[in-house]
């Protein structure tokens, strides 16, 4: 490792001093690289924003056209020179447009994964792997108790429930960016070709996906549908907004929720849904450890979640590992 690290941490988050930009900053900054469009990574109000065209489109759909003073789109694999460093975005497999930030200078490479997953997703480009000297990984599911089952098997449970309860609407709670689109495409891949009712928050994002060539079959707005239409139908949207949308006009719904947390029995039961589906857009323990092993960094920083187990795993492999270091704020806004 060189004496001057490629990455440091400020109060706004990860910072690249030689390129003078932040990655997914939590405060407004002059220059930001945004890994993907989820609200905890993409904020409005930065000066210059660099991201994939897909992420920029998602940000515009969610925050309006003036979400940043200027923007620059980068294709996966394309290089941009930012100050003294070279930046590439590689697919992270998390949601549409999600990227890992690869920063290089003088033969040293650092990767910030952002949110990622390794398994196939019909609604996202596959994860791309490169080796690096310094890896910053997310750790949402950074404990060995989290091993997600194949999503296809979980969707099969939803189809089985539709067969068992043919008169009841199935309300599938899912985040409107990523999870909802993935579920729709998984249902289509499993042969479900009836119209799917979507909350408008989902449809807004679906429009962005469609512009980038995704085909979801017949989708309808939850808002305009008649109660009869919901009998035995699938409705997808943010969990807290689904039941009110039906407004008690239908047979009692079967409540479904798709989340990686539901792999824990206690979480599934406290969620109070009838059908918990363990489907996550984040890497599980096996994917996280495999990624650390394959990227084979000399230094690892772990952020967003449970750090201790991954740090332990990495140290056993001789990697200098720890949680994100404290902010070194002085010169940086």
């Amino acid at each position: 490792m060189p004496a001057e690290p490629l990455l440091t941490v400020t109060r706004a988050g990860l910072y690249v001093p030689d390129g003078d930009f932040h990655i997914d900053p939590t405060r407004i900054v002059p220059r930001a690289v945004i890994t993907h469009g989820h609200a905890d990574h993409a904020r409005a109000g930065h000066g210059a924003v660099l991201a994939t065209a897909e992420t920029l489109a998602i940000m515009e759909a969610r925050m309006g056209p003036r979400f940043a003073a200027s923007r620059q789109a980068l294709r996966y694999g394309e290089r941009a020179a930012l100050g003294g460093v070279s930046l590439r975005l590689l697919s992270a497999g998390h949601v549409l447009g999600s990227a890992q930030a690869v920063i290089e200078k003088g033969g040293v490479r650092a990767i910030v994964t952002g949110d990622f997953k390794r398994r196939a997703d019909p609604a996202a480009a596959p994860f791309e792997l490169v080796e690096a000297d310094h890896l910053v990984t997310e750790a949402t599911f950074g404990l060995p108790v989290f091993r997600h089952p194949p999503a296809e098997g979980e969707v099969a449970k939803l189809l089985q429930s539709l067969r068992l309860f043919p008169a009841r609407p199935h309300l599938v709670g899912a985040y409107s960016l990523g999870k909802a689109q993935r579920l729709i495409l998984l249902l289509r891949a499993a042969g479900y070709d009836l119209p799917i009712y979507c909350h408008d928050a989902v449809l807004k994002i679906v429009d962005v996906y469609r512009r980038f060539g995704y085909d979801f079959g017949s989708l309808r707005s939850l808002a305009g549908a008649t109660p009869e239409a919901f009998a035995g139908a699938v409705a997808i949207g943010p969990p807290e907004r689904l039941a009110p949308a039906l407004d008690g006009r239908t047979a009692p719904p079967v409540t479904v929720f798709a989340s990686g947390w539901l792999g824990l029995r206690a979480r599934a039961r406290r969620s109070n849904v009838m059908l918990p589906l363990v489907i996550s857009d984040h890497a599980d323990w096996d994917e996280l450890t495999r990624t650390i092993d394959e990227v084979a960094p000399a230094r690892l920083w772990v952020m967003h979640g449970a750090e201790a187990a991954l740090v332990h795993h990495a140290r056993l492999r001789g990697i200098e590992a720890g949680p994100l270091p404290p902010a070194i704020d002085a010169a940086v806004p």
Partner: peptide, 27 residues
């Protein structure tokens, strides 16, 4: 043992921890 300790502390239930942590097939 470190992973077991962290996991059990997080999950809070031994049987559930064993079910999730057991080095068996995932499907």
């Amino acid at each position: 043992p470190v992973l077991l300790g962290l996991s059990e502390d997080y999950v809070g239930d031994l049987a559930e921890t064993v079910a999730l942590l057991w080095p068996g097939p995932s499907t």
